[in-house]
Amino acid sequence: MTDAILSCSGISMDFGGVKAVDDFNAVIGKGETVGIIGPNGAGKTTIFNVFSRIYIQTAGTLAFNGESVDHVDQVGMARRGLSRTFQNIRLFSGLTVLDNVKVPLDYKGEYTMAEAVFHLPRRNRMEKAVAEKAMQTLELLDLAKYADSSATALPYGLQRRVEIARALVSEPKLLMLDEPAAGLNPEEVLQLVDFLKEIKSKFEGIALLVIEHRMDLIMNLCEFLYVQNFGRTIAKGTPAEIQEDDAVLAAYLGEENI
């Protein structure tokens, strides 16, 4: 399948007897927005960790952009164009907001250590380009005024946004967001939805995979949903279909709906 950016079949992840993910199958098309929902401990984050190769699945196969990536490690996956945020914010504490956002561009920096040390022209040119690009991304997220603040000193909501900026700056083919709305107030959630839609128009062909608890966000944003419970997919379909699904209503949307 050439128009899928990521596809997996039969993915399972065992942690010494705990089946965190059990036989997960998914296809994410280029430019698509897909959501994963499910209660706590359903294995959502584990799916992300397998996709980004922090964990290597215990069964199943994974393909990215038409290429099998079962043998690829975390670094290789990032370099192929998969980028993510973390549920428990993981900004680099010794760096400013701007430097945090520069980091994903650094591995492909073209200047050598000697050029870096002697401040040769190419180093200065590259550094300027990287700073500009990082700054543009910060502006996109309305973070420009925090560029020189220490990243981990910012309030929680802003840190989440910096995480998104950092994941976006390398212009990934697939951007994975792990509970981007956690800890945000309703107004901020609306902003986030608008912003994510803006990303889709600005970065042509970017696919989004979003884990979320907030139904307003997921229903507004996603074209397709996977509903996970105890590691298994209990339903999949468009948001409208999912809202009608009895199994989902029972397992996830809460008893009060029934």
Binding site: Q74, A78, R90, F92, L95, M113, A116, E127, R166, S170
Partner: peptide
Amino acid sequence: ALKRSRFGRMCIALKTDETAAKSFG
């Protein structure tokens, strides 16, 4: 000069969170 270059940034990223650093290539 090393600290202020891309190498410095990558090192500090590695120091604070190696897994996160890897996930940015």
